[in-house]
């Protein structure tokens, strides 16, 4: 008499194969989320409201110093006069290495503004651009 494992039978084997594929897919998604979501420090953050937003931001090494280039945009039609920003530089362990002073900027309504900052201490590996538009606003 031929005994067959129910799991090796046609429909059951197909189901288990699909389950394995689904689990593999889920594991991949979790890993991807982990890599993208938790992969280091946020490149920019807003200290309060978002009158002026970061349209794009990128950093690169130039020798042993790090350069950050960002485009800020005032999405409203009104001028923003009280916006300030600073760049914080972190080493490979996430320790704050240095930070610029707050830079005051005026961004006309709908206009873009280009920000270019460079670390002055070798060893910066990550950065965060902090924008504070007006602390007096809610």
């Amino acid at each position: 008499m031929l005994h067959t494992n129910p799991l090796n039978s046609g429909p059951a084997r197909s189901f288990s194969r699909r389950l394995a594929m689904l689990l593999a897919l889920m594991a991949s998604l979790v890993m991807l989320a982990g890599l993208t979501g938790c992969g280091g420090r946020a490149t920019h953050e807003y200290a309060d409201n978002e009158d002026v937003e970061v349209e794009s931001i990128q950093g690169r090494m130039e020798g042993d110093l790090m350069l950050v280039y960002a485009v800020l945009r005032n999405s409203s039609s009104d001028d923003v006069n009280d916006s300030v920003y600073r760049v914080e530089w972190y080493d490979a362990d996430g320790f704050l290495l240095e930070q610029t002073s707050w830079r005051p900027v005026k961004v006309k309504g709908g206009a873009a503004m280009h920000v270019r900052e460079r670390s002055t201490i070798p060893g910066a590996k990550e950065y965060t651009l902090v924008i504070s538009n007006d602390s007096r606003k809610p």
Binding site: E62, L65, S101, W102, R103, E117, R118, T120
Partner: peptide, 17 residues
């Protein structure tokens, strides 16, 4: 003070580059 800080930092960044 903001003028001093901005100027000194800008100059240092420029010269280092």
């Amino acid at each position: 003070s903001t003028d001093i800080q901005m100027t000194a930092e800008r100059m240092a960044q420029s010269m280092l580059a």
